[in-house]
Design a protein around this nucleic acid. Structure first.
Lengths: 202, 202
DNA sequence: AAAGTACTTAACCGATCGGTCAAGATCAAG
DNA sequence: CTTGATCTTGACCGATCGGTTAAGTACTTT
């Protein structure tokens, strides 16, 4: 196995295993075995399990951002971006639910929830990514307000509320292990946005 | 140490340690030591760490229900109950935040988030308690609608949305480790309920 | 008082935990 | 061809993991 291929494999495997199970229940040995990388190599690249985890989740966040940049493309109408995002959230959970047989929820929220009180660097990462997601919503909502698609005074406050709602709903879906919980995503979101009739192409 | 005092001590200690840290990072030895109970006694009362955890959290839920029964007392006006509940959520997080130096979030959601994909009995408990909390909201909102305090068609749907919002907000507060996130509790909740001016006694 | 049950105690188990180490392999630059 | 840096390998570490066992103590019931 050459150069930094081992490092990438570790990043991908760590994110997959931990988001599928939990930080506490996944061991370094397990990550190494599934990566086909020996433990010594692990500790050549990363100083600790915690450091690998942060790197793995930031790696995943970087690729997720590419997807979000497409979904929130400035070329689309703001309400279309939001609709596409709601679809994306549901689709992601559906896909992983089928692959792993369990509804996994949001990996960043799950990790943050488990370790925020114990590992400050993981808490900061989860916080940063949460803020990043929220910003996509805020920019879109601001533009929607400017265009007159949404009538609201404070785009920031509205984005906060919407993001909070989505986080809560995905969390509930995980605990219920039921994708149907996400049926409430669009109805609740559009009500929050003051759009009592859902946009056309839903 | 006499009779079932050991068992109660284990239940209380387990809930405290696990909600303060996480399931994965708290060991049976640690629970035993802090309880002043020997490991053999532990496994006399409980068959596994998982079983103790379920019992501990249901024990805590039982006492929380007494508090909620008071907050959601039928003698109060529905909107007062909701206001008191919002205060209670914030106050609980503030108290624990001061005691432990960390904002801990909702113990049931945190545990459910960590273990829903791995331990079905813990998932079911978290789901049941989430449903229990939601029901308090639903009954109150239904009564508020009947009285004309809130205008909405579907009390169930509205309670779902409110509960989801609260779960999401407490989660975000935990990840931000900042009690000020809960400043958005009332504003967001009242907007969700269609009450654009917050009730008097806030 | 005897017997049976509930509970406590301390020693013990194999497995796994996160992490270390030193020797070797590979590779690019001089 | 040599050097030095990067990466790999497998053996190894003490600590802790969840859980077991068997003997002993305390309390209840009859």
């Amino acid at each position: 196995m050459r150069q930094c291929e081992s490092k990438l494999k570790l990043l991908r495997t760590a994110h997959e295993l931990i988001s599928q199970q939990s930080y506490g229940s996944v061991g370094v040995d397990q990550i190494c075995e599934q990566s086909g990388v020996k433990k010594g190599s692990f500790y050549h690249f990363f100083r600790s399990k915690s450091e690998l985890t942060v790197a793995a989740y930031e790696y995943h966040w970087a690729s997720l951002q590419e997807t979000l940049d497409r979904i929130f493309s400035a070329e689309k109408a703001p309400l279309d971006r939001l609709g596409d995002y709601f679809n994306h959230v549901r689709q992601t959970q559906t896909d992983r639910s089928q692959r792993y047989g369990r509804l996994l929820g949001c990996p960043f929220v799950s990790l943050g929830c488990e370790l925020s009180t114990q590992d400050e660097s993981i808490r900061l990462m989860a916080q940063k990514i949460s803020e990043g997601k929220r910003t996509y919503l805020e920019n879109t909502i601001r533009e929607a307000i400017e265009r007159g698609d949404i009538s609201a005074a404070d785009p920031r406050a509205l984005a906060d509320e919407l993001h909070t709602y989505i986080v809560g709903l995905v969390q509930e879906a995980k605990i219920a292990n039921d994708i149907r919980v996400l049926d409430r995503l669009k109805s609740g979101a559009y009500r929050l946005l003051g759009l009592h009739i859902a946009p056309a192409a839903v």
